[in-house]
C-alpha cells in the first residue's frame, strides 16, 4: 500500500551573516520499506536517528530531498500517488487517507477549543459535514475511542494524559484514514494507561482495517503492537524483519545491543547479558566512513571502516545492512 524508496531528507546547516550553507544534517539518508494493508510496521531507533522525520516526510510535513513515496490508499487497483512529488493542491484529497497521532497529548491539543471543535475540525476543513451531522460523527468517534459522549463540549484541560491521547486518536480517525502514522503515541504515558491505549490502537486496527506506521523507542511496546519491525540508525535502516524473528535472532549488531539494553521486569535470572555500547550516536552531519555503526560495533572489521553496507535481502522477509550478517551469531531477547 505504501512503498518508500531511497527517501532522503537533508537539513541545511547554515552559518554566518548570509546564512551560507556549510553542510547538511542527513536526518534521513536513503530509506526503503513497504507497508502492506492492515499491518503494523514498527520503526525503532534512538533519538536523532531520523524516525520522526520519516513519519513527517510521509505526511509531507517536510519536503523530501530525494526519493519516492508510492501510496495506494485503495490497494493495487486504486489510484497511485507519489507523495514525494505531489504539489499542495493535489495533496489535499490524498491527505484524508493519511493521519498522524502525536507523542505529547498535552501540547498537541488546542486548549481553547472544545472536543467538538478539535475532533470535528478535519471534517469541517474538508467540507464533509457540519451542524448536527458533524456532532453525530464526533459523538460516534468519542464512543469508539472509549470516551463519554457528554464530554463533547469540554476543553482539553479537563482530561488526563490517557484521555487526551484518546482525543488525539479520535481526531486522527474521523476522516476514515487508511494509513495512520503514530509517533511515540504512548511514551508520555504511565504503564497502566499505556496498556489501555495500546489495546485501543489494536482494537481500532481490527475494527477499521487500519495500517499503522508505529514510531517508538520502546522495544517492548513495539514488539507488542508490530507485525514487522524496522530498526533505524543515523538516518538509515539497519534491519527490517518480522517482529518475532527480529527479537528472537537479530542480524545486525546494533539491534542486538538495543535488545540487550531492554530490562525485563522479572526476576534477576531473566536478565540477559547487557551489551554496553561505547561512545555516542554518530553525528548525522558528519557520519563516520563505511558503516555508520562501526566505531561502536564490537564485531567491526577492516572492511566496515571502508565500505558502507546497503540494506540487502537476507532471507525471504528479512533485510539487513551488515557485511557480516551471515557469519555473526547474535543474541536475541525472549523466546516465545
Amino acid at each position: 500500500m505504501l512503498e518508500v524508496n531511497g527517501l532522503k531528507k537533508h537539513f541545511p546547516l547554515t552559518a554566518g551573516l548570509f546564512s551560507k550553507v556549510v553542510s547538511h544534517i542527513k536526518a534521513v539518508d536513503g530509506v526503503d520499506f513497504a507497508l502492506k494493508k492492515g499491518e503494523t510496521l514498527g520503526l525503532v531507533g534512538e533519538s536523532g536517528c531520523g524516525k520522526t522525520t520519516v513519519g513527517r516526510l510521509i505526511m509531507r510535513l517536510y519536503e523530501p530531498t530525494a526519493g519516492s513515496i508510492q501510496f495506494r490508499p485503495h490497494g493495487e487497483e486504486g489510484e497511485d500517488y507519489d507523495l514525494a512529488t505531489l504539489d499542495n493542491a493535489s495533496l489535499r484529497p490524498v491527505r484524508s487517507h493519511l493521519q498522524m497521532i502525536f507523542q505529547d497529548p498535552y501540547t498537541s491539543l488546542n486548549p481553547r477549543k472544545t472536543l467538538l471543535d478539535i475532533i470535528g475540525e478535519p471534517l469541517r476543513l474538508n467540507g464533509m459535514s457540519r451542524g448536527s451531522e458533524l456532532e453525530d460523527r464526533v459523538v460516534e468517534m468519542l464512543r469508539l475511542v472509549g470516551l463519554r459522549p457528554e464530554y463533547i463540549s469540554r476543553y482539553p484541560h479537563a482530561f488526563s494524559g490517557g484521555q487526551r491521547q484518546r482525543i488525539g486518536i479520535a481526531r486522527a480517525l474521523i476522516l476514515n484514514p487508511t494509513l495512520v502514522i503514530a509517533d511515540e503515541p504512548v511514551s508520555a504515558l504511565d504503564v497502566s494507561v499505556q496498556a489501555q491505549i495500546l489495546n485501543l490502537l489494536k482494537f481500532l486496527q481490527r475494527e477499521l482495517d487500519l495500517t499503522y506506521l508505529f514510531i517508538a523507542h520502546d522495544l517492548g511496546v513495539v514488539k507488542h503492537i508490530s507485525d514487522r519491525v524496522a530498526v533505524m540508525y543515523v538516518g538509515k535502516l539497519v534491519e527490517l524483519a518480522e517482529a518475532d524473528d527480529l527479537y528472537r535472532k537479530p542480524l545486525h549488531p546494533y539491534t542486538e545491543a538495543l535488545l540487550s539494553a531492554v530490562h525485563v521486569a522479572g526476576p534477576a535470572h531473566s536478565q540477559g547479558e547487557r551489551i554496553v555500547l561505547e561512545g555516542e550516536v554518530a553525528d548525522p552531519s558528519d557520519p563516520p566512513s563505511g558503516c555508520y555503526f562501526h566505531p561502536r560495533c564490537r564485531y567491526a572489521q577492516e572492511r566496515c571502516n571502508q565500505e558502507t553496507p546497503e540494506l540487502r535481502r537476507f532471507a525471504d522477509s528479512r533485510f539487513v545492512a551488515c557485511h557480516y550478517a551471515e557469519e555473526l551469531d547474535l543474541a536475541g531477547a525472549g523466546t516465545t
Binding site: 504503564v191 525472549g334 516465545t336
Partner: peptide, 9 residues
C-alpha cells in the same frame, strides 16, 4: 500491564 519481550500477549 507491561508489554514483555519474553511473552506474547
Amino acid at each position: 500491564s507491561l508489554p514483555r519481550l519474553d511473552q506474547k500477549r
